[in-house]
Simulated assay, not measured.
Amino acid sequence: MRKNWKSMVKMTAAAAMTAAFAAGMAGCGNRAETSLEPVTVILDYVANTNHTGMYAALDQGYYKEAGLDVNIIEPTEGATATLIAVGKGDFGISYQEDVTVARTSQDPLPIKAIAALIQHNTSGFVTYADKDIHSPKDFEGKTYAGWGGPGEEAVLKAVMAKDGGDFSKLNMVISDGSGFEALKDKADIMWFFEGWDNVKCKLSDFPINYMELRRLDERLDYYTPVIIANEDTLKNKPEMVKKFLAATAKGYEYAIRQPQESARILQKYAPDYSLEMLTMSQEYLAGKYMEDTDRWGSMKDSVWDNYTDFMVEYGVIDKAVPAGECYTNEFLPQ
């Protein structure tokens, strides 16, 4: 039942990509005619607090000050890397694992990560508190509901093995999208992001046990999410890339300094979420965007190599790829 994400990364159907792009553009209105350089950013999902720095840069005029007319759109699920690879957008939001899969696939996508939105992996496994599941070994005989990501099964195998558990005794299904309530009667384990899903649980007084991924295995402290770009864009428009990242860095620095105001800015673009929820999420992520670094967006070879080796070991990819082929810091502000 799990989706084949390797095939999704390699998706090249023109109709699907065109439809995704058109759908995202439909609700954005016409660009004002200006002398600013147009730039399109394709998100990985709906607007959320991972993206706040970009919306802050938009709202505070940092992009315009840099001479850029930035348009942020939402994609169809799973299509961002492909859309960026074929030039449908200038920048996209993706993840280290997806970039690595894209670079090592049979038909490699010409994309690179150019900035990390968050310095550490802020996700983990969650169970309903009343079920008395406290470690990966306890996953035996239980049901995990996930999204079918490229490294999902590998991560579960690794953390269960490290804790003395037997992965073959875990039942894996695709989530039906019903959210955390499914942990009561439809599933036992889910993969949550602490700054988003855990906040929802707290606001709903829904008790959970949370197992932080990077504490279960240090190799799983990979970059998620990242900003990606097409290699042609990096080669042919280096100054535009630098201006975009400099303005984006200012946006994230603003979000770090003023999380409450940043939550109000984000709500303009994500009105379906309560201000209370966005504020709690923003206050959490304010300490995560630049955790353990003094340079927003910077990435390290060691983080890429550790997770690449992990993906090779567990068969997510067939061969290792040098970190330098997957990411670069050269366009970040100094």
Rank of each mutant, 00 (worst) to 15 (best):
G53H: 08
R219G: 00
E140D: 08
V199S: 07
V226Y: 08
G324P: 01
Y55K: 02
S135D: 11
M17L: 15
I93H: 04
D309H: 13
C201Y: 09
Y307K: 05
M311I: 02
E152F: 02
H120A: 10
K64Q: 15
D166Q: 08
A323R: 09
A85W: 07
P75A: 08
A182V: 02
A270H: 09
L156C: 08
A15E: 13
A129L: 14
E140V: 02
T80Y: 02
W196V: 13
H134M: 05
S302L: 07
E74M: 10
Q258C: 04
G315K: 08
G149M: 12
L285P: 00
V159R: 02
A263V: 02
V126H: 04
A19Y: 11
T76M: 14
C28Q: 15
V159F: 09
Y252W: 06
V39W: 03
P225N: 03
V303P: 00
V321I: 14
F167G: 01
E181W: 10
L278I: 12
S7K: 13
I93C: 11
N50K: 12
L285D: 04
A66T: 05
E325Q: 15
M11H: 05
E181T: 13
G315Q: 06
S35M: 10
E325R: 13
D318Y: 04
Y222F: 15
K3M: 07
R257N: 13
C326L: 13
A102Y: 04
P108W: 00
K288W: 04
Y45C: 09
A320L: 03
I228K: 07
Y45M: 11
R103L: 14
V39I: 15
L43H: 08
T82I: 02
D138G: 06
D309T: 08
D98R: 09
K237L: 04
N4G: 05
S281C: 12
T127R: 03
A85F: 08
V312H: 03
Y45N: 14
G124W: 07
F192L: 06
Y327W: 14
A57C: 07
R2S: 09
A286P: 01
E261Q: 15
T224C: 13
K184S: 02
I84Q: 01
Q119E: 15
Y269H: 13
F139E: 05
F125H: 05
D197P: 03
V39P: 10
K10D: 15
Y55W: 09
A154S: 12
D221Q: 06
R103N: 10
S298D: 11
M211H: 12
Y223L: 13
E330C: 00
K142Q: 09
Y210F: 15
E218I: 00
T233L: 15
S204M: 14
K137V: 04
G61N: 01
D205A: 14
W191I: 01
S262R: 07
F331C: 06
N198D: 06
N171S: 09
G315R: 03
V101S: 06
G177C: 05
A85R: 08
V199L: 11
G67M: 07
K137I: 05
M172H: 03
D59H: 14
I118N: 10
M190D: 11
R31W: 03
T100G: 00
G151I: 00
A15C: 01
